[in-house]
Amino acid sequence: MNTLHVGIIMDGNGRWAEARGLNRVAGHSRGARRVSDIVSAAPGLGITHLTLYAFSTENWQRPLAEVNGLMRLFRNYILGRMESLRAHDVRVRFIGMRHRVPVHLRQLMEMLEERTRNCRGLNLTIALDYGGRDELSRAVRGLAERVAEGALAPEAIGEEALASALDTRDLPDPDFIIRTSGECRVSNFLLWQATYAEYEFLKIAWPDFTAETLAGSVKGYHRRQRRFGQIGGAAPAARAVAEN
Rank of each mutant, 00 (worst) to 15 (best):
L79W: 06
R115H: 14
M82Y: 12
R72Y: 10
E114R: 07
R72I: 09
D89V: 03
F94P: 02
H88P: 00
N118R: 12
G69Q: 03
R100V: 00
H88K: 08
M97C: 15
A87M: 08
M71S: 03
G96Q: 07
R106C: 10
E113D: 04
I78T: 02
G96M: 10
E110G: 13
M109Q: 07
S84Q: 09
R117N: 09
E114F: 14
H104E: 10
L105I: 09
E66L: 06
L70W: 03
M82R: 09
G69D: 02
N68H: 14
T116V: 01
R86N: 10
R72F: 09
M71K: 00
I95C: 13
T116P: 00
R91I: 00
R115Y: 12
V90K: 03
L79N: 07
R86S: 14
R75C: 04
A87C: 13
L70P: 01
M71Y: 02
L85K: 02
D89T: 05
M111P: 05
Q107N: 11
H88D: 14
C119V: 04
E110W: 13
M111E: 13
R75E: 13
Q107S: 13
H88T: 12
R93P: 04
G69F: 01
V101E: 04
A65C: 07
N118G: 12
H104R: 05
L108D: 07
R86A: 15
V90P: 00
I78Q: 01
M111I: 03
E110H: 11
R98V: 13
E66Y: 12
L64K: 10
H88Y: 12
R100M: 08
P102C: 11
E83D: 15
R98Y: 03
R98T: 10
M71I: 02
D89H: 11
L73W: 04
F74G: 00
Y77T: 14
A87P: 03
E113G: 07
L64T: 09
